[in-house]
């Protein structure tokens, strides 16, 4: 018989976990964009200020940390008990 691999419809919890996983995957991409943004600031005559840029970078940094903290917590919360989780979904959720 076919391996019971890809399930089309998932339990609500498992589905939620996977979407949170997706969100976690998107964070570094968002981070790259936000960290590159200061390069577009200021002009040749009037470059951006170190203090303002520094503040901005630390804000983004903090945002990423908080974002991950919240997402990993949410993911932990929506986790089904390990046995039943692995039973309903033997495959890795992202693969």
């Amino acid at each position: 018989m076919k391996p019971p691999a890809k399930l089309l419809f998932l339990e609500r919890n498992t589905y939620r976990r996977r979407r949170i996983g997706d969100a976690i995957k998107m964070l570094p991409i968002l981070g790259v964009i936000l960290f590159l943004l200061p390069l577009l600031w200021g002009s040749r005559q009037e470059p951006a200020l170190t203090s303002i840029t520094g503040l901005y970078i630390f804000c983004v940094w903090g945002g990423l940390v908080i974002g991950l903290l919240v997402l990993t917590r949410l993911r932990g919360k929506s986790a089904a008990p390990p046995e039943s989780d692995s039973w309903t979904n033997p495959q890795d959720p992202t693969q």
Partner: peptide, 11 residues
């Protein structure tokens, strides 16, 4: 910082 030699972000 604003008064220092590295006040500008011109990387």
């Amino acid at each position: 910082i604003d008064a220092s030699a590295i006040s500008q972000f011109d990387v």
